[in-house]
Design a protein around this nucleic acid. Structure first.
Lengths: 239, 239
DNA sequence: ATAAACTCATTTATCATACAAATAAAGATG
DNA sequence: CATCTTTATTTGTATGATAAATGAGTTTAT
């Protein structure tokens, strides 16, 4: 087991969480009993049980007397939990997963842009603008374009001033990372994409929610169309 | 402490979770120490620590030596966790919270309808249709209209065939319950609303994603407009 | 006087052990 | 054959002990 800065319980949580998300333990499978986990990880029952409880709290497993510890149906998994998303990323994301991410991103980001146009404060607008500056700098190699991209999307979510959208920053971050993994280029954001981001910001700043919504929606539908095409090609190859 | 079917740990999790979500413990506050919680609930350290770990896993608290147990910033809360949503509902939902729910529902349900039109299986369509039958029966008092309403929205989410949307059923359920609390009528769904649901189903069945999207979007924007108006009135009264 | 090093008290982290409670499966009973 | 009882397994809970982390206060060196 890799020794990290985390405490014992956290380490076990991550070890088991990763194994569940990458399919080493499948839905319905029984995990080793508490006693077995103790010997496997060479730790006390306290640490083991606390790890089991944390995974239970994240909706991944269920633990009952005599029945043992089992992986529950994936519809119960807290897919928006920051740890679970990390484990998703550590698995082997395929094009289908990328599509799932994009489908939800499309819904979220368009409406977030709409809300930002309605409710963004001056500070919110400044935050979005500075992320655009970073993104422009990135085209000259003065900043990390991927970081700046994440920053932009986060600042729009914040500007929605809706706690639910704000909590979904984790999700967007992971979605962008999965996306980056499938685009075969060094830079995360092209000049055209940068321009699209600028347009959205302008609509938000000018308090034009519908235009912001449409701009975000069109961009995302285009991205999604590319992935759909890739999936079609892949499917025609294998059949 | 109410004695429920749940085990000790779960009971403490719920007691503390409710207190955090209703503001009895505010962000930044220190909860009682492990030792104090043991005496307060009259339970062992084992049960206490496991409860603390579960709340940590849900992103509500942080627990470190010497520092104790503190409520973390709300942006870290797993607002899409089924338990957390339950505690949100048990708090005092106000019009602003209802608006937050509606804003996200709008984004989700429109796109879910779009995806359902693309990817719904025959079984998915049957499920949506049967929920509409229940809803119609409800107008004759033969079924619970609220249950049927939840059923409809769940079946559309399922028909999206996207695990992220499916995981958000909890969220939609809670959103509908909050909504019900603020509409001063016995029945959850009016005849007009029932018709709107039928339209969305027709578009999904006819594989017309854009029409399904627009229909869902228009309905939701109308609902949101009503709430926005109520908030405006409320604000004008208090100032 | 200031900053660095040290001490100390508090709180969580971890371990070990014991017994209780739940429950699935096997066996006994009618 | 069905039902009840027993039994073994696994998690649930309690207790006590020690380790490790850390914030705050104290001392020490410059």
């Amino acid at each position: 087991m890799e020794s990290s800065h985390r405490n014992l319980t956290q380490q076990v949580v991550h070890e088991l969480g990763k194994k569940i998300l990458n399919g080493s333990y499948k839905v319905g499978d029984r995990l080793p009993s508490e006693a077995d986990l103790c010997t496997q990880f060479n730790i006390s029952r306290t640490a083991t049980r606390e790890a089991v409880k944390m995974l239970t709290a994240k909706g991944l497993i269920s633990s009952r007397p005599r029945q043992g510890i089992t992986v529950v149906e994936s519809k119960h998994w807290n897919l928006f939990d920051v740890d679970v998303l990390e484990w998703v990323l550590l698995g082997k994301p395929d094009l289908y997963l990328l599509r799932y991410f994009l489908q939800l991103r499309l819904a979220l980001e368009a409406e977030a842009a709409y809300l930002a146009a309605l409710y963004a404060t001056e500070a919110d607008l400044k935050a979005i603008e500075s992320s655009l500056v970073r993104m422009k700098d990135a085209t000259n190699g003065m900043d990390d374009t991927h970081e700046a991209d994440i920053d932009f999307h986060h600042s729009v979510l914040s500007a929605s001033n809706n706690p639910f959208f704000i909590q979904l920053k984790n999700f967007i971050t992971t979605a962008l990372k999965v996306n980056l993994r499938f685009t075969n280029r060094m830079i995360a954001v092209t000049v055209e994409e940068y321009q699209a981001h600028c347009d959205i910001f302008e609509y938000i700043k000018n308090k034009n929610p519908q235009a912001a919504f449409d701009a975000a929606m069109i961009t995302q539908r285009a991205t999604l169309a590319i992935v759909n095409k890739q999936i079609e090609e892949q499917e025609s190859h294998t059949t």
